[in-house]
């Protein structure tokens, strides 16, 4: 055990990241509102950023320790603190210089419990930031997500985003039905008029990449929450096209997962590891959880 004297000197976390833009992209994907509070959880495995709304919608961004070029975590527990997500993203964004790979160092906590950021590229030019943190006032819900019957469906990210964007027109609530025969996924919106979008596995294999379903599952979700799962995905992530997974879990809990590359964007050979391909571990995971509407009685679960 370390003495308390060194405890006060050494921060819990010191980490360095060489692709700030990747982190900006990942966090932008969960920024569905202008003023949003996020809870950041730190452990030896990495950093998790959690955003919630009305305990109906939750998003988590997992930045595993492997994404960082240096990751030193000195504590045993999992410190949690709150920050303004918008401010955090805007601040990170100033560190990202277009056409220039920038390395930043993140430290927590600072002398006044701040989150400290600084650029470490150059001796003669430097950017630094101190972000005030808060003690989080709520415990974020942990869903213990269990798959039920139909997991997982993999869409191309753009197809899923387009479908959900199109459902904006009927709005209000959207019914998602997954059925084994014929293997298909249906999004149906009833509001101002109705709109139904079918993805039939065999005929839309370029949009719906993977499908597995044992029995029919059907739930309704509030459109505004469903929309949040894809509305802010950055264009670079859509072009990257790593696919998005949609899973309906027990009780109708919907999980939407996206992958965001946090590898170095430069074309230099540094991004290629010794095996000659891009390091697969440098992916940030983004998960959204959406609770179904409660007056649901058509569910077959």
């Amino acid at each position: 055990m370390e003495s308390s004297a060194t405890d006060s000197d050494a921060p819990d976390l010191v980490c360095q990241l060489d692709n700030v833009q990747g982190m900006v992209d990942a966090l932008t994907a969960v920024r569905w509102k202008r003023n949003q509070d996020a809870v950041i959880e730190i452990s030896e495995h990495g950093i998790v950023v959690i955003v919630e709304e009305m305990s109906c919608l939750q998003a988590k961004v997992y930045l595993q320790s492997e994404l960082f070029i240096r990751y030193e975590y000195g504590e045993q527990g999992r410190p949690r603190f709150g920050v303004s997500l918008g401010l955090f993203v805007d601040c990170l964004n100033t560190f990202s210089v277009p056409g220039h790979s920038s390395t930043i160092e993140i430290r927590y906590p600072g002398p006044d419990m701040q989150l400290l950021l600084k650029s470490v590229d150059s001796l003669d030019a430097g950017i630094y930031a101190e972000i005030r943190t808060r003690i989080p006032d709520t415990i974020s819900w942990d869903y213990n997500f269990e798959p039920a019957g139909s997991t997982p469906l993999t869409f191309t990210t753009s197809a899923l985003k387009e479908a959900i964007d199109d459902l904006d027109w009927p709005g209000s609530s959207i019914q998602i039905t997954v059925q084994p025969d014929p293997p298909s996924v249906t999004f149906r919106g009833d509001g101002h008029g109705d709109l139904q979008i079918d993805f039939v596995y065999y005929s839309n294999a370029d949009l719906l990449i993977a499908f597995h379903c044992d029995r029919q599952v059907s739930y309704r979700y509030k459109y505004k929450f469903l929309r949040a799962t894809t509305s802010n995905i950055p264009g670079s992530v859509i072009r990257d096209n790593r696919g998005s997974k949609l899973t309906i879990g027990r009780g109708g809990l919907l999980k939407v997962q996206h992958l965001v590359s946090v590898a170095r964007t430069s074309t230099s050979h540094q991004q290629i590891d010794s095996a000659g391909h891009q390091n697969p571990s440098r992916i940030a995971y983004i998960e959204f959880f959406v609770k179904p509407e409660e007056d649901e009685d058509t569910a077959d679960d």
Partner: peptide, 9 residues
């Protein structure tokens, strides 16, 4: 809430 700065030397 935040201090953000840059220094060019």
């Amino acid at each position: 809430l935040i201090t953000l700065g840059a220094e060019f030397r």
